[in-house]
Design a protein around this nucleic acid. Structure first.
Lengths: 245, 245
DNA sequence: GCGATACTTCGGCCCCCGCCGAACCGTAGG
DNA sequence: CCTACGGTTCGGCGGGGGCCGAAGTATCGC
């Protein structure tokens, strides 16, 4: 019935270079064409072509400033799609023989990396910190998991108390979900996305709890942030250390 | 980081033939290799190869019986992924110039087709009937849309009253969501999927309210079904007529 | 202006992939 | 058995797509 559009969309992500570009852009920021080319390991001309394809296909949007071409994902919906596909692909054993012989477990170096500890995932928090925040909100009943995630009524008040307003009245249907589960790659457990996830990250960054590390997606917890995370979410920094094998 | 698996997964759906196969299997049934070959318009040998790829990639599972090879989607999660991608692709204008000059509106013939009226979508109801059921359950508070869909407490009792049990206690985390929104292709509005969606369809079919039409995904409302839909969901058959243009 | 920088366009290479037809293999059914 | 039928394997064909390097265009800084 509509196989053509499906194949066209899937085709955009079917190439390792383009896939890597989309994954890099999952950090929610705008990258220049050159940065992306270097990041995914192709020459500038190649990246230019692929980026044009992705823009034409509607997955990316571009913004030209002077001699720079900034690219970012077209929106939260696009990010959600890429996230979901990537999580599904990572969860799939796939052709067990064809995939790398790496066991289900992540390598030690990955598990101990800064990104595994705390990172952004498009516009929300991920890594062990993201999962810990999700657990905390579930544990204190701010978010319920009664058949799909939802913000509870007392939860809304609690969030308002710490300075996060999630106004439920937004432009009509088809809007972005208030809270959404997003499977964490490194933890293989869900963290929070959606409007609430974005608000939490924004709040944490604005309050100086977290700082970006270098140019990647990794985040660093500030001293003040450590106190705040403990007081507000009951998360200790020890929780962010990788579990022993 | 994990571009390779993503590209591999997307690559499975990046071919029109394979995409059409997956869309056909969205009806939730098992098809034989020959049926699929004929349906998507390729010769048997071609289909055989593509089917093997899809099975190796984990999207499809096969079951051999005698000289037949039955194929179906690997599970609800796979169906959800295909649905989501297809809906996203259909919603995307994409390269407006490259896609067919067809306007945003569906053609009259599609809108008036049996499939647009009522059909199955993997294991739940779709089309105008599916959307009407979703609207009905939302209107009477059986399902709430307070930031993600959820079955309400009174809603659970109401469902039990009409003979649908949605037991919330199931094997651990990562289970299938109780109720999930699935964007309807023809209506471009959400209908209900997840455990509840499947239970609704099963109930409607078991009770003889709906019958499959031919070999496709289309459904026909029986006379008794029309009464039941009116009494239970307050849906009249007129609601299933295509809206005037 | 003039050179550096960021990006794009073009040509060409190569490989991969989807398709088919023909031959082959197993099962079902007389 | 022997035929019919569903499915698979294989060879070969054609097209498309990703990659690069080189040349070209636009912008910035001096």
């Amino acid at each position: 019935m509509s196989a053509q559009p499906l194949a066209r969309l899937a085709g955009l992500l079917a190439d390792p270079t383009r896939a890597a570009i989309c994954l890099a852009l999952l950090d929610g920021r705008a990258w220049t064409a050159g940065e992306l080319a270097h990041h995914v390991g192709v020459v500038a001309s190649t990246a230019s072509e692929q980026l044009s394809r992705l823009v034409a296909g509607g997955l990316l949007v571009e913004e030209r400033q002077g001699r720079h071409r900034y690219l970012r994902l077209a929106g939260p919906g696009t990010a959600a799609l890429v996230e979901e596909l990537a999580a599904f692909a990572a969860a799939q054993p796939g052709d067990a023989a064809a995939t790398a012989p790496a066991p289900r477990n992540l390598t030690e170096s990955v598990r101990r990396s800064a990104e595994a500890r705390a990172r952004t995932c498009y516009d929300h928090l991920a890594g062990r910190l993201g999962v810990a925040v999700a657990d905390s909100l579930l544990a204190r009943g701010v978010v319920s998991d009664d058949a799909g995630l939802a913000v509870t009524r007392p939860g809304r008040a609690w969030l308002a108390g710490i300075g996060i307003d999630v106004d439920v009245d937004q432009p009509g249907r088809g809007r972005r979900p208030l809270v959404r589960s997003c499977l964490d790659w490194t933890e293989r457990r869900p963290h929070l996305a959606g409007v609430l996830g974005a608000a939490l990250r924004t709040h944490a960054m604005d309050a100086g709890w977290l700082l970006p590390v270098g140019t990647g997606r990794a985040l660093r917890v500030t001293p003040g942030g450590a106190d705040a995370l403990r007081d507000v979410f009951d998360i200790s920094l020890d929780d962010l250390a990788p579990a022993e094998p």
